[in-house]
């Protein structure tokens, strides 16, 4: 049995807990033994991206201690996953624990398709769906086809591409509040593209992007809903008892 330690990220833990639950459900259904280490908090990205490396470093150290000995760490976020697997090394150069950790950290869809070799989890979902490529998943983790394959294999789900799937939603962490007008302009361009597809649901693998997109959709009084990939895959899926 594959043993998986969840790193649910602070955003999922505190704002979108159902995403974490859905991820656990899908992983268990795929035959994994899932654990949650309660000492976990954040990946350190907010401080790192804001230039506060000393503060980020201490939080990264906390992460390393928390996940010591974990066989696989699975994260419902491309961005947080990339922080760990790509940027911890910049924060803690020469630290062997980082080196050991890198090959064991996976974004959720990546873990399904690359490690478990699962492309059909047996879920069903009724509706027209479009997929938003989150930047760090796409450009740092090179995740592009995996989530699409997983979606295409969901019964009843029809996937339609938006013309600018790879364009940033404008979230960018503190960028969204340091430059609210630019960030707002970016997300409005994004929802225009989403609306042009006619989809009723927009799916991504990063809850932060979805918070930004859902916030703008709500502001625009749109009926379109955002869902994390894990929530779609967990839909009408029987939990492994």
């Amino acid at each position: 049995m594959v043993r998986v330690s969840l790193f649910v990220t602070c955003v999922v833990d505190q704002v979108f807990p159902n995403v974490g639950m859905a991820m656990a459900k899908v992983l268990e259904a795929a035959g994994c033994e899932v654990e949650f280490r309660e000492a976990q908090t954040c990946c350190a990205q907010p401080a790192f991206n804001s230039g506060y490396r000393d503060q980020a470093r201490t939080v990264a150290e906390h992460f390393l201690t928390t996940f010591e000995g974990a066989e696989y760490i699975v994260v419902p976020s491309g961005s947080c996953c990339s922080m760990i697997s790509h940027h911890f090394a910049e924060l803690l150069p020469g630290d062997n624990r980082v080196h050991d950790l890198e090959p064991r950290v996976f974004e959720f869809s990546q873990f399904l398709t690359n490690v478990l070799k699962v492309e059909d989890v047996g879920a069903s979902f009724d509706g027209l769906v479009t997929y938003h490529d989150s930047c760090h998943a796409l450009r740092e983790l090179k995740i592009k086809d995996g989530p699409r394959k997983l979606l295409q294999n969901v019964r009843g789900l029809r996937l339609v591409e938006m013309d600018t799937a790879e364009e940033c939603c404008g979230f960018g962490g503190t960028f969204s509040v340091k430059f609210p007008e630019i960030s707002g302009g970016m997300v409005r361009t994004k929802i225009d593209a989403i609306e042009r597809t006619g989809a009723s649901t927009v799916v991504s693998i990063d809850s932060s992007c979805l918070m930004q997109i859902q916030g703008a959709l709500d502001r625009a009084r749109s009926k379109i809903r955002t869902m994390h990939l894990a929530e779609v895959l967990a839909n009408t899926l029987k939990a492994a008892e």
Partner: peptide, 24 residues
């Protein structure tokens, strides 16, 4: 501050009743 700036452009999600760690 940041919340006001966020709200200048988009809505905020409603905080959930329970965190993931509580649900778990």
């Amino acid at each position: 501050g940041p919340v006001k700036k966020w709200l200048s452009q988009r809505d905020l999600p409603v905080p959930p009743a329970k965190s993931f760690r509580d649900l778990w």
